[in-house]
Amino acid sequence: MVDSGGASMIEVGTKLTERIFWIDRALLKQYADASGDQNPIHQDEAFAKSVGLPDVIAHGMLTMALVAKFVTDWSGGSASMKEFSGRFTKPVIVPAGAQVDLTVNGIVVEVDEQTVRLELTATSNGIKVLGMSKALTFYS
């Protein structure tokens, strides 16, 4: 039998190689401009502190954009993503002048003929910032 490749080649339990993205204030500004989300809690330290946050925090959707990149670099590009979800458990705190990590991991939990389901985690400074995260992707 000729193996058609794709998702059928992947085994449940396969772990994706851990990847670290680095986040700084400049990236937050870049994401704010690209997404249209100009909420000052992501750019203005004095404002963030005035509403009870420890410092400027990253957009939750920036975290998800980076985790999506982690998934689709593995699965075959942006067009491969079918479903993607997550819960923002803690903020990613981004002090001035600092680069903070977003450390992303994933594991294959289900394989179909064409698709792969992944469970994903993301931490920053050792703290879980994205939970209950799943992706369903085509795999090529």
Binding site: F21, A65, A68, K69
Partner: peptide
């Protein structure tokens, strides 16, 4: 570009 992808053909998932 925010996630380091250049010359995208389709929009990123999010």
């Amino acid at each position: 570009a925010v996630v380091g992808e250049l010359n995208p053909v389709v929009a990123p998932p999010t």
